[in-house]
Design a binder for these strands. Structure first.
Lengths: 249, 249
DNA sequence: CAGTGGTCTAGACCACTGC
DNA sequence: CAGTGGTCTAGACCACTGA
């Protein structure tokens, strides 16, 4: 046998979904109906649908019903582009998909503040733990859909000489651009990993099921020091990171 | 309020774990004890622990107990290395971590066979759907721990002239190496994404909780055509992919 | 308002582990 | 064998949605 009843029910529903018998967007029977159909209790049905939810195959909407999820349509982000090498790049404009206006991201909200460095950020930026940092957070959308969370950390050395040096709290971005221009980047390090989202990420990406997030940690260096750490967080099922080396057709 | 009772219980337990009150490896109270402690039913307790399980914070072992998970210790894989450019690279030796023998991977099992191309593989290798391919699967371990699943696809054009051309099923790898040597790679494309594991991956990586996998799809090109597609699958919590551009300290 | 999924209970029995 | 987590039931009430 296939083991537990709720797993058999999940297998049966999964088969109906992947075979196309239950196409994307279609509604599953209600929980009481499924319970009757499979001769199971509603709790068992919910165990089964819980599995499919965590696989991202279905979505539940309270008060409405349970629906087959639309298959994800990932967008490709290329991070071997020469353009990213240019000075004047703004951090949250990098690491975004190419394409027409429909797939052009817009940073609808952002704000800038100063924080103290935790151990992890201090290590990569080569500053003391507890040192002051300027941090800029962006919420990037593709049209109305959430696309990525972008957080940049700047050591105080970098923003020194700009108006940000005195500002404890600041929403102006112009001085950050100025600071970036004053430090010509000569290298980037990207660290890429995936994990399950935290509460804030689940809310921003409107994740109902168990979809991972992909994190790109990008450190920019000038000739002497790290000048910026930027973390890009994406829904894993919407992102395909691409990197080309050498001659690729 | 924090909403549902099971979420409050999960929040409380999560706080005890992240604060160190419940260190990694320690056992949580049994489900009946937690039910008494929080004045909840066992079902509600299981909803709470289910959340933490899916976050990878705890692990349950039937007949034994519930334990705080050890924090993941990711290894870094660098994929901007010049070494990877050299001919003679064997596919399952690339994309592996650096370091001493303790972190040197060993391909304990592999086998080679011929299959017909599905639509996706056919597209990237520029062959017809249904064309014959030679595929080599490797199961890579770090000591006794599963580390990665590696699958390589070769178009028949590439293996032509080697003994593999006639062999329907073959476990010899020497002819594959020969084939690779005959086609000097001049470029690589990497596509990186994360998703939840399928059943085979869950079994190989011994995943009890909801840990994603990171997939690196690596296409090698010679001057005329794609010569190999290799898919590397890793546990997301064990992997940190690193790529450097320009001058990095 | 009726109907949906979300939460919660109290209890039962099973499957597995370690002693 | 006792104790653990795994499965399942039957029922209740709540929160939300849309007509």
């Amino acid at each position: 046998m296939a083991g537990a009843k709720y797993r058999q029910i999940a297998d049966d529903l999964r088969e109906q979904i992947t075979s196309g018998k239950l196409p994307p967007g279609s509604q599953l029977p209600t929980e009481p109906n499924l319970a009757a159909e499979y001769d199971a209790s509603r709790s068992t049905i919910r165990l089964a649908t819980g599995l499919l939810t965590h696989e991202g195959l279905i979505e539940t909407r309270q008060g409405v019903g349970t629906y087959v999820a639309e298959p994800p349509t990932p967008l490709t982000v290329v991070f071997s582009r020469e353009e990213d090498w240019q000075a004047g790049e703004h951090a949250d404009e990098a690491m975004q998909p190419e394409g027409d206006s429909a797939t052009r991201p817009t940073a609808e909200r952002f704000h800038t503040e100063t924080v103290t460095a935790d151990a992890e950020v201090a290590a990569v930026l080569n500053v003391s733990e507890g040192a002051q940092l300027v941090v800029r957070r962006s919420y990037v959308y593709l049209g109305k859909d959430p696309w990525s969370l972008v957080v940049s950390y700047y050591p105080m050395d970098i923003v020194r000489g700009t108006e940000l040096e005195q500002a404890g709290r600041n929403t102006k971005t112009s001085s950050l651009v100025l600071a970036e221009h004053g430090h010509q980047p000569v290298g980037y390090r990207h660290d890429i990993y995936a994990r399950m989202p935290d509460a804030a990420e689940t809310a921003f990406f409107q994740l109902s099921s168990a979809i991972p997030v992909t994190v790109v940690s990008r450190i920019a260096y000038d000739s002497a020091q790290p000048i910026r750490l930027t973390r890009y967080v994406y829904r894993a099922d919407r992102l395909r990171l691409r990197h080309d080396m050498g001659t690729v057709p």
